[in-house]
Amino acid sequence: MINILVVTHGEMAEGIVHSAKMFTSEAKNVEFLCLMEDMGQDELFDLMYEKMKGLSIDEQFLIFCDIMGGTPFKISSKFSFNNDNVAVFYGVNLPILVHAILSRGGRSLSSLTSELVEVSHDSLGLGAI
């Protein structure tokens, strides 16, 4: 099973994980980390390191971040750099997170992430009514 970790500026990560569970019911191995205002990036790295311990081929991680280039993204990228067992997806929103949780079973990380990239295009837009 692919582990999911959501990391954002402020409490968005906590909120979006709780919201996602309204669609997925109880979801195992879906965790979050919130970068709070007075937190240094080293502290975020340490917290993330705790979550990622024991990483192996059977313990793949998909990390969702909010803003491309933001601190959560940059710290997450330290873990995905040269590591096929960790992927970072930025611009997380609720439909994408729910889709990832529901369709990760029995999948490889790379097949899941390519699918998310495709699905993501339909997850934002203007309601035409």
Partner: peptide, 12 residues
């Protein structure tokens, strides 16, 4: 800025 380029730089 200790973080150099990051969210606040990119967005504003």
């Amino acid at each position: 800025d200790e973080r150099l380029i990051h969210g606040q730089i990119v967005t504003s």
